[in-house]
Structures are given as C-alpha cells and as structure tokens.
Simulated scan of single mutants.
Amino acid sequence: MRILVTGGAGKVATSLRTRLAATGRVLRLFDVVRPAGIEGAGAEEVVLGSLTDPDAVAAACRGVDAIVHLGGQSKEADAGEVLRANALGTYHLLEAARREGVTRIVLASSSHAAGFHVRDDDTYPDGLPAGVPPRPDSLYGWSKAAVESLAGLYADRFGLDVICVRIGLWFATPPQNRGLATWLSLDDGARLVEACLSAPSPGFRIVWGVSRNTRRWWSLAEGEAIGYHPKDDAEVYAAERIAEFGEPDFEHDPELTRVGAWWCDWPLAQRMG
C-alpha cells in the first residue's frame, strides 16, 4: 500500500512517519522541501512540489492508494494566502485523486473551522458533536471550512471516501491549560489516521482530532464510529500545567469554553503577526 502524505516535511507528518510505518506500506512524502531522515529500502519516497502546482500534485498522486493531507498554510494569514494554500491546494489534490482513482482521503481540517462554537453541556452532554456547522474564528479557519465543504462535494459527486479531522492541539504534550481539554497526543493522532484509512466505506465524515482527555468537552462518538479509540489523557500533565498557568475554568472562561479560544478575540493584525 502506498500512502501519499502531503506536508511531508512538517512536524505532524514527521511524528506520523514512524507510527504509520508497516510491512508492505510505502509513505510518499510531498512537500516543497525535502523531509529529513528518509528511511531506506523503499519504505519512504519523496516528491518535491507545491500544492498550488496542479501538475506537481498530479504527479504526487500517481500510483497511490490513499492520501493523508496535512499540507497547506497552518497559521493565520491574509485571505489570498490561506485560500491559495488551503482551499485551492486541496482542490488540486482532490481533483488529482479523482482522476487517478484514489478514493480514500484523510484531510486535516482544524478546530478553528468551528472556533465560535461554545461549550454547552446541557445541549450536548456527551460533548460538542464533530459535525456542528462551521463557525470559523479566523481567515485560516474559514479556509478550513472551505476545505470541508469541498470534500463534501467530492464525496457526493464522485463517491470519494473523505474524512475531515478537526484537529485540536496535536503536540507531544498538551500546551497551556487549553490543552488539558483539546490535546491530541502523537500516538492518538496516529491511531486516528489509521482508523480513517481503514474504516469501511465511510463516505464523508467530520471527526474531532482529540485524545481521551478527562476535561475534554468535544465528542468522541464520531471518531469511535470509524474505529478511533484514543488512549491518552492530558490529565497526567494537569499538575504541571496548573502550576504554570493557574487553575483553569472550563465552565466560564471564554478562552476555554470556545472551540477557538483566544482566536475568537484577537485583532486580525495581531493574529497575522
């Protein structure tokens, strides 16, 4: 099985590479720069190019069985940049996948596509559903909402199986107090990607990229429906985080009760700085 990983030189892809390694599996890494530490014996391949170049994307998709799409703009930027890198880049990828007959795609969306949704335990006692309508908190989040919409189009029109992951904080350890609720561990991130790759005929889905955190208030039901069963809990870091940042209030603090946290408040110029 050959899996194309876009953004192959990035931090998330780097953490996934060893975790996705398996007998009979080849990872094709696509990025504008060469990833470090390429494995030998054909376990990894490199294709250099940009998501904004449709010919390069088409070449990267040739002969692959599935795609894990991590590439694009990962931070706030002006509208032209986030739409070019994320929306247009994803269009090039989905179109190339369709033409090449690649039907299984995992797309990195973001919690910021739903940033203005708030914690509501009365309405959602099992956690905020992953498929709540987009409420982006930034131009970056808007571009990720566009990616989700485009993925739905390709699933409905062309029958692709596309799972969009609204990623929380995908780090080795949970950053800040917010991470006590929204952390996605490196191992759980790999478990989630594996579930997305192996779920039978998922069609179009949206799932949260989050671990089984004690203070989590996002739903795990959508992930569990495709076989994602996270094992890690940010609570093991709670004492350390509270000592550094103070006791968090996940019921009233708007930085902790909104999906997008402070992204909902920052002036655009500050977010872009």
Rank of each mutant, 00 (worst) to 15 (best):
A181E: 03
E148G: 03
S185N: 03
A114P: 06
A77I: 09
A172D: 13
H69N: 10
E81I: 14
H117E: 04
S149C: 10
V165T: 07
W183L: 11
T90L: 09
V162S: 08
S185F: 04
W183P: 00
D137G: 01
A151C: 11
G141W: 08
G72S: 02
E76Y: 11
P133C: 05
L94N: 04
H92D: 07
D126A: 11
D137R: 06
H112V: 09
L150K: 01
T123L: 13
V106N: 06
L93Y: 11
A96Q: 11
P136Q: 10
E81L: 14
A108E: 03
E100G: 09
P133V: 04
A79M: 14
G131E: 12
V118H: 15
G168D: 00
S110L: 12
F116V: 01
L150G: 04
I67M: 04
R166Y: 02
E76W: 08
N177D: 08
G115V: 03
V162W: 01
Q176H: 15
R166M: 09
A85Y: 02
G127W: 00
G127N: 03
A87N: 08
A66L: 06
G141P: 03
T103D: 09
P129C: 10
A96C: 11
A113T: 07
S110K: 05
A181I: 10
D156Y: 07
A155K: 00
A181G: 09
G127D: 00
L93F: 11
N86K: 05
C164T: 00
R84K: 11
E148L: 02
S110D: 06
L160Q: 06
S111F: 13
H92K: 01
S185H: 12
L94M: 05
V106R: 02
L160S: 07
D156L: 11
G141E: 08
Y154L: 05
N86S: 10
L94P: 00
D121C: 09
Y91R: 13
K144Q: 12
R84C: 05
N177W: 13
H117N: 07
L139I: 05
A79N: 08
I67V: 14
L107C: 14
K144V: 08
